[in-house]
């Protein structure tokens, strides 16, 4: 199994990945509390970016409403924990279930009725906005006044209930990111991966080759939604508060797709590289501004916007593909290399 997974990955790429993993593993030993939280954020975005990438990068379906799945995942697990004391490890079943149902309904509506391309993207936004307003009025989870988890005790780590130190969350997110990376790698070289890419490149040609386009698009949405909802679970237990205005907001959806776009859509390494670059730069800028004593809301988003603008204009395939070529990881660990 492992041998099959590794098959075809260039050795230099493998070495680089190993080194990166080692670095990420020892990072908390040296990092301050603040740096650790930045590290968590980077891994969080890398994970969600990877999940989004399944839909857009692999199957070519542009979702601008992924905050929907983050929010549903977060609320489902948090509500079960707060109301019934159910462990998030069990609650995540509900999170994944709800997110998959939402994805399936969205996908069914869109793909059955020929809503494609940009209209599909609009529909995803509409779903997320629908959820945002709906949760604002959902009194079981306190509506717009926000839903709070009992604040964690930082001296002991209770992994079962996800109550513990930032370090625990960091390692949890790292484990999830590694798992997502491996899973996406395996998916991409499976039958499904081939079919997704075929659909992305030309749905008509894929269908003429016997691919049930509807079924595989649905699979992409549902799998991506399920993965994204897991990030929501961790998000809820890490931040301990949930506001529909924030978690379902369209700016969140856009924030979480910046990583893979800047890193390189459709590549496995892209989401990680993008998250690293973007979060690193944004946090660095925030620090610098703090030092200078200026605090203006919105500056980070303007920065994001300019980054996105520059990347789509000058690096339409993202940062990673040219970087990989430069580093001699031709078509890098990101894409399969046959032979």
């Amino acid at each position: 199994m492992i041998a099959r997974l590794l098959e075809g990955v260039p050795r230099r790429g493998l070495a680089a990945l190993g080194a990166l993993l080692l670095l990420l593993l020892v990072f908390p030993a040296f990092a301050s509390g603040y740096l650790l939280s930045v590290g968590f954020l980077i891994l969080h975005f890398a994970f969600v970016g990877q999940a989004w990438n399944i839909m857009m990068g692999f199957a070519g379906q542009l979702s601008l409403g992924h905050s929907l799945y983050v929010g549903l995942g977060a609320y489902a697990a948090a509500a079960l924990y707060v109301h019934f004391g159910i462990s998030p490890w069990i609650g995540l079943g509900a999170s994944v279930g709800v997110a998959m149902i939402a994805g399936a309904v969205l996908g069914f509506l869109a793909f059955r009725f020929g809503v494609a391309g940009v209209y599909f993207a609009i529909l995803t936004i509409a779903f997320a906005e629908f959820a945002r307003i709906g949760f604002d009025h959902f009194s079981w989870v306190q509506g717009s006044s926000g839903f709070f988890l009992p604040v964690a005790n930082y001296t002991t780590n209770d992994l079962w209930n996800l109550r513990g130190s930032p370090k625990m969350f960091y390692y949890l997110m790292l484990a999830m990111s590694v798992a997502a990376f491996v899973a996406c790698h395996a998916l991409l070289r499976s039958r499904m991966g081939y079919y997704w890419q075929a659909i992305r490149e030309s749905p008509e040609a894929a269908q003429a080759l016997g691919v049930n386009v509807f079924r595989y698009k649905m699979a992409a949405v549902v799998i991506s939604a399920a993965m994204t909802s897991l990030a929501g679970v961790v998000f809820a237990f890490y931040y301990n508060n949930l506001f529909p205005e924030q978690i379902f907001h369209i700016s969140r959806s856009i924030e979480l797709i910046l990583g893979p776009i800047i890193g390189g859509i459709g590549t496995l390494v892209g989401p990680l590289v993008g998250a690293l670059l973007l979060t690193g730069l944004a946090e660095g800028m925030r620090e610098a501004m703090l030092q200078l004593g200026v605090e203006v809301p919105g500056v980070k988003q303007v920065f994001y916007g300019i980054c996105l603008l520059l990347v789509v204009m000058f690096l339409p395939h993202g940062v990673w593909p040219p970087l990989a070529r430069h580093l001699g990881l031709e078509r890098g660990a990101g894409r399969r290399e046959e032979r």
Partner: peptide, 16 residues
């Protein structure tokens, strides 16, 4: 999607 992303970027800058 590339055009769309361009306009998303413009929107992000404008609103902020």
């Amino acid at each position: 999607h590339s055009q769309f992303m361009l306009l998303v970027a413009i929107a992000l800058v404008l609103v902020n």
